[in-house]
Write a protein that binds this DNA or RNA. Structure first.
Lengths: 214, 214
DNA sequence: GTAACATTGTTAAAAAAATAACAATCAAAT
DNA sequence: ATTTGATTGTTATTTTTTTAACAATGTTAC
């Protein structure tokens, strides 16, 4: 009954999300159990890391059979899912925004995509993979009304800051920023930023290194 | 003359890429110098971290004026850029692939987008933001011919593994995988994977935590 | 000219994350 | 029955990353 509230390491949370999806995929093979090293190799990490993460969430596998896949999926869900579900909106329905809407629309999970925003009249009032698109003018109103928790920002870089301000005022609780523009939000809002250019330059750097220092 | 070859920390490399872009943006303000704490606040990190990273690449600012922005940009370029430039291809010209092509096409840097691949006849032989689209059948041939170094994979999850195999055989040196499917490549190929679903679930987890433990 | 101050550069410490080490357990084989 | 072997669970160690501490430096104000 007493819910585990000790906080998990950042990286463990990320991996748990990946474990779950990998395990759901794995169920298609028909197997009910999985060994730590199997799960590890599916994710390119070590088996120790898998076992350690699983230990941290308090699950135990059976010794000779490994982990019960369904049980593990369910437990991870209890840890990282939100009881009443979490609502997400995408701001900016360009290529990236559309890609994200499509990505998530398929998956059934406790996270639901409930609105999209743009300024292009062509896009407003259209429905993308089941998600309604509204004008950005309505952003504050709709986020309040529908009690949306998280916004994914995929607008052009030049307007990112302005959108962030709108989101802050709308009472959003978390932001996932995919624009290359860095935004500022109060500390009570959880902010995660990802920059594709950085990732590519990182790959380039290490490819280069590999070439020079074999 | 002797090039610095000691290897920089992973995270430092990522930040250097971000510093550079932030600094280029910063030049528009007309200012020639920047303090560590200014750059830090633009990126939501600490000034110590900025100074430490800059120390690691062997640059020195002036004491009262901070860092010379142009000099710093140039030095970062000499560190993370590739002498002869690096060629990139995008495999999968869906929404995400298109978004990425557009992203990079604007920037001028040592990384150049030189080809795209898809299987949709509608897309093949079209030009996206200056980038030619070819049929995946030609992938190996073109990567070899044009000596392409890095591939960004944005195909549907179901074909990711197959594409990865093609890429390995084509002699690619680095892969940036944006599909939720984990792929396997030999160790001599640098692989970076990013999964948007994981990021969203991470944000959801911490938003939830914030709510329960204030 | 000198005191006060803000800033850099660098070493030291702390924190976070990954890895290693290994005892415990149980199934299967002999 | 006993040994062998494979696997888990957990503590210890190492590595990586971040943060703190602080001396050095030069600019500005007085």
């Amino acid at each position: 009954m007493a819910m585990m509230t000790k906080k998990l390491p950042d990286k463990t949370v990320e991996r748990l999300s990946q474990y779950r999806r990998t395990l759901m995929e794995y169920l298609n093979t028909g197997r009910q159990h999985i060994y730590s090293h199997e799960l590890a190799s599916l994710l390119h990490i070590t088996s120790v890391q898998v076992r350690r993460d699983i230990m941290l969430i308090g699950y135990s596998g059976t010794l000779r059979k490994g982990y019960d896949v369904r049980e593990l999926i369910n437990l991870i869900g209890r840890i990282i899912d939100i009881d009443k579900g979490m609502k997400v909106a995408v701001v900016g329905v360009g290529n990236l925004g559309s890609a994200i809407i499509n990505y998530y629309s398929g998956k059934q999970s406790n996270i639901s995509m409930v609105a999209a925003f743009d300024i292009d009249p062509e896009k407003i009032h259209r429905v993308y993979a089941g998600v309604n698109c509204f004008h950005v003018h309505q952003l504050r109103e709709i986020i309040r009304q529908q009690d949306i928790d998280i916004a994914i920002v995929t607008v052009p870089p030049s307007v990112a800051i302005q959108i962030a301000e709108e989101l802050v005022m709308s009472g959003i609780k978390g932001i996932l920023n995919y624009t290359p523009t860095r935004i500022n939000v109060p500390t009570h809002i959880y902010l995660e930023e990802y920059d594709m250019i950085t990732s590519l330059e990182k790959v380039a750097y290490f490819v280069k290194k590999q070439k020079t220092t074999p």
